[in-house]
């Protein structure tokens, strides 16, 4: 009986997993060994910090990240910039605040409690500036695309020359991993586009990896504590289950019957 239960569970898990995998991998996505995958998966701090650099220098011109605050940059489980660094990053942005006593909005330096500033006033403005395509908000992007981190990584590195005979409209680019292969975002990364402050060589792959790691953290800021807590919870549950199992055996041994 127990076997059957376990087997049913396994079938269930596998079928769900299989379905999900199938849906995700229409074209084989590029795969790399993300440090945040697995039971003990953690973010690579250096990668997160570099990823933030890529985001702020390359992506932030068009893509908002409206659910993140500057304080998140120094929080545990994230890029873990020091408190002072995060404060300096926040202060480097100009935030509109107000209204003041005269009823007017005013600009001030950003504070830790501020949300990431938006590149455009609103979605319409973003569309108008980008040929009608809204550059999606990146706060939860890594969870909002099936394939997740692998998908984003593949898109960033999936630009190639269109197959001969393909005619692309103006402002449309060819990307091997994009649904329908047409993407309105120009190829964002080039070797050496940013200069990493920690001396890492800014190859295209490196930047893609870093920024995707950063996006994964942005989408799932509590991933590390989730993994840590999960491990403790499951170890605890197994211990309790074993204890209860033997208690059950004891109790049922009072009557002559199988459990």
């Amino acid at each position: 009986m127990k076997k059957i239960i376990t087997i049913t569970y396994l079938i269930f898990l596998l079928s769900i997993g299989g379905y999900q995998v199938k849906a995700a991998e229409k074209t084989d996505l590029l795969k790399i060994d993300w440090s945040f995958k697995g039971l003990f998966g953690k973010f690579d701090r250096g990668s997160l910090q570099r990823g933030y650099q890529v985001y702020s220098e390359v992506c932030a011109g068009c893509h908002s990240m409206k659910y993140l605050s500057y304080r998140n940059l120094s929080e545990k489980g994230g890029p873990e910039f020091s408190f002072e660094q995060a404060k300096a990053i926040a202060a480097s942005f100009e935030v509109t605040d107000g209204p003041n006593a005269d009823g007017e909005m005013f600009a001030r330096a950003g504070k830790l409690s501020d949300k990431f500033i938006m590149p455009y006033e609103n979605e319409r403005a973003a569309q108008a500036a980008n040929g009608g395509a809204y550059p999606p908000d990146m706060s939860v992007l890594a969870k909002a695309r099936s394939g997740g981190a692998d998908y984003l990584y593949s898109i960033l590195l999936g630009y190639e020359a269109p197959p001969s005979g393909t005619i692309l409209d103006e402002g449309v680019y060819y990307n091997k991993y994009m649904y329908g292969n047409n993407i309105k975002m120009a190829k964002p990364l080039e070797d050496g586009l940013v200069e990493y402050s920690d001396g890492t060589t800014a190859s295209e792959e490196q930047m893609a990896k870093d920024v995707v790691t950063f996006l994964m953290w942005a989408a799932e800021p509590h991933l590390e504590s989730r993994h840590q807590m999960g491990f403790k919870v499951i170890v605890y549950l197994i211990i309790l289950t074993i204890l209860v199992y033997f208690s059950m055996k004891k109790i049922w041994s009072r009557i002559e019957s199988e459990v």
Binding site: Y236, L237, I239, L240, L243, V244, F246, S247, K250
Partner: peptide, 19 residues
């Protein structure tokens, strides 16, 4: 032993509920 087993189950269970 039986008593210990039950006490342990209860105690561990109680910790879980509190958590």
């Amino acid at each position: 032993r039986r008593e210990f087993l039950f006490t342990a189950s209860y105690a561990v269970g109680a910790v879980g509920v509190a958590a």
